[in-house]
Amino acid sequence: MNMSLLEIKNLHAQVEGQEILKGVDLVVNAGEIHAIMGPNGSGKSTLAQVLAGKEEYEVTEGEILYKGQDLLEMAPEERAREGIFMAFQYPVEIPGVSNVYFLKAALNAIRTHRGLEEMDAMDFLVYVREKMKVVKMDETLLNRPVNEGFSGGEKKRNEIFHMSVLDPVLAVLDETDSGLDIDALKIVAEGVNSLRSEERAFLVITHYQRLLNYIVPDVVHVLIDGRIVRTGGKDLALELEDKGYAWLEEPLGAGEPVSA
């Protein structure tokens, strides 16, 4: 079997009538880490939201195959149960729902879908404690309501913690590094690196090259104005660090001036 894990073909998507993605093509294989970089407003987060299934984003053209299946036909929860995880750029605070119990319900929904037995409270706690070490999470954050009163860094770490508990096949990190100090950034990166495996793939969306010093990608894509304008190896990120995005923004052959 030689199927790619994720195949995005000519993806067009709009929100509130405005086209954001204008023909994205992307192939991700199991075991790979892909980075998607690009300036603000280029469509990075839209791509992540479309993958996770947010309804406000309307796909007008193209398709997404995940494990060979039509991803766009699947509800957000089905995608999650099939192994897609998105770490939110802005994790949502959910007062009244405890972090740990919520995770247990989520994990059991996923396990049930996969034909596994539900995990009981004791086994779950042992399992969760193990995962917490990876992101160096304080145990008190387990019992607090999801993200409520968490600092920015704690929220991002909590996303990585959720990811490690839910054990995804394809993890999409939407600017998980933004706004983190170096210690938190390292923890996030260690979390990702510890989950790297032959079966799993990552799509790391970032605005800053710095993260890629800690999570070394196999492939780097540059997304500008809704299209992937360049794809390269990890060195492309360093090149972007030196030169910025401007040199890539000129439409090929058009020669028109590009505003900043």
Partner: peptide
Amino acid sequence: AIFYLRSRGIGEEAARSLLTYAFAAD
């Protein structure tokens, strides 16, 4: 918040119920 819960594998109905419960839990 509903989308956030669904994206972690919780079904839509359950997500709505969870948030409703959380509202009352106060």
